[in-house]
Design a protein around this nucleic acid. Structure first.
Ligand SMILES: [Zn+2]
Ligand SMILES: [Zn+2]
Ligand SMILES: [Zn+2]
Ligand SMILES: [Zn+2]
Lengths: 160, 160
DNA sequence: TATGACATGTTATAAAGTATCGAGAATGAC
DNA sequence: GTCATTCTCGATACTTTATAACATGTCATA
């Protein structure tokens, strides 16, 4: 017999999916925004994935559920989720990942495995002082920072 | 009367263009590769630009010179230059910039102005120790790092 | 002169992202 | 209620970015 799935927060088959979705909805509401069914479903799709999903990956999943879906439908939802800090864009792979800490918007620091495609977000403790220095030297006003680390994750190193 | 242009290395109207192209050619040759006329011209185009150029920007310039040019022609040259560390790809803008220090290949650290599009490359002295730590903690083997800083450059701050 | 390696040309297509218009639902003022 | 405003979403068409697949040219050397 299979053991009872762990039902603690963020564990079990859905990794606390509903809780995270509800949290997201609350976050939006507090900002006077609305996590509509479509946006909620898109977020859910991204949360369920174990790797960054392309907009057209999301589109395909949506299309299975509701018939023909056009790109703007997906991009609008993803843009909304980006604005709300609920997902991050992964430039290296033209994909989107769910943010792992939505309490307040931040720039993501992502470790992306070239082998399995998995992407892990690490909270950035503080601004990189060296970056700040360089910016100051250039008289450059930082607005955002893209930091993506590519390589091989623990699992894939083990497999090799 | 206009003052005599400064003719020191990397100064003057062409910023040492020919010298940089010759250096690049030598670099390739030393590696058993060849900076063909096409590749050299593509590098020149990127060097001449004062901002990241898209592949299709390059294509357009080439097409003016030699008639119809197809995308693979440009992408192949750019890929070659990327491999040789002569240009960097700027993910934030789907563009390419010439590397400012081609002595040996490295990851670029780019400061990109959202206003004028200018991109400045800053040599990364050493690996970010915090990044190394995090990677070690994740048992993640870093292969490359994308670091792009977006904001407003000194010139544009002054203008505002 | 073959033969192989490499660079380039050519055609077609895939993948990613956007502009624009319009219908319908939700919100709030009156 | 109903009117105007705003937001959301569907739908059509399109632009931009990138690659696959195959053919041709070029050059060195066996
Ligand atoms: Zn995050
Ligand atoms: Zn992996
Ligand atoms: Zn460089
Ligand atoms: Zn600027």
């Amino acid at each position: 017999m299979t053991p009872t799935p762990d039902r603690g927060p963020d564990r079990g088959p859905d990794r606390g999916l509903d809780r995270r979705l509800d949290q997201a909805a609350e976050l939006c509401r507090a900002r006077g925004q609305s996590l509509t069914p479509l946006r909620r479903r898109v977020l859910e799709i991204v949360l369920e994935a174990d790797r960054p999903l392309g907009a057209y990956d999301v589109l395909e999943i949506l299309a299975e559920e509701r018939g023909r879906v056009a790109p703007p439908t997906v991009y609008r939802s993803l843009d909304f989720l980006l604005d709300q800090g609920l997902v991050h864009k992964v430039l290296s792979v033209n994909g989107f990942v769910a943010c792992s800490d939505t309490a307040r918007p931040h720039a993501a620091e992502l470790f992306i495995c070239r082998h399995c495609g998995n992407a892990v977000e690490v909270a950035r403790k503080a601004a990189d002082p060296r970056l700040e220095e360089t910016a100051a030297g250039l008289d450059f006003a930082i607005e955002s920072v893209v930091l993506e680390v590519r390589g091989r994750c623990a699992d894939c190193r083990a497999d090799a």
